[in-house]
Amino acid sequence: MLYPLLMTSASGEGGIRCLLVRAGEYLCALPLNQVRRVVATLTTHPLPGAAPELLGLAEFAGEALPVLDLACLVNAPAGAASGQPVTVVVWAGPPAERELVGLAADEALAIVELPLHALTETRLGLVSGEALQAGRPVRVLNLEHLGAT
């Protein structure tokens, strides 16, 4: 399922611009057209009985924003605590029903452009493919899949 997204958002040079973030020990690439905003870590209010991926609710732009733990979503092992933790506000879910969701990451690194030939489709799910960035593997996320039950 990389392709529709990549096709729609691909640059003319046959690459995909992504926001590179670190979640635990993993580097994750969030397609830039699905990123709404990067903010310093939002204060969340936990919800009793919630799944472990849901950190809680935060206020963003006057609205309640569910915040998910990205490392937990991609099953990343715990990494270094250095850097500035951020909440990346993204559009998630199918395009027709997309909604804003916060993804808590350990660090927002940069805007990168991943060449399409470097992408490897892995499986159908949140992590739709992998690529190498400066010699390190990067997991490319398909945020449309996040709303799937």
Binding site: L47, G49, A50, A51, E53, L54, L57, E63, A64, P66, L68, A92, G93, E97, E99, V101, L146, G147, T149
Partner: peptide
């Protein structure tokens, strides 16, 4: 008051 979205309901089925 806004209704909870699908993603929230997915992770908090209350």
């Amino acid at each position: 008051v806004r209704k909870p979205g699908r993603i929230l309901r997915r992770f908090w089925p209350v």
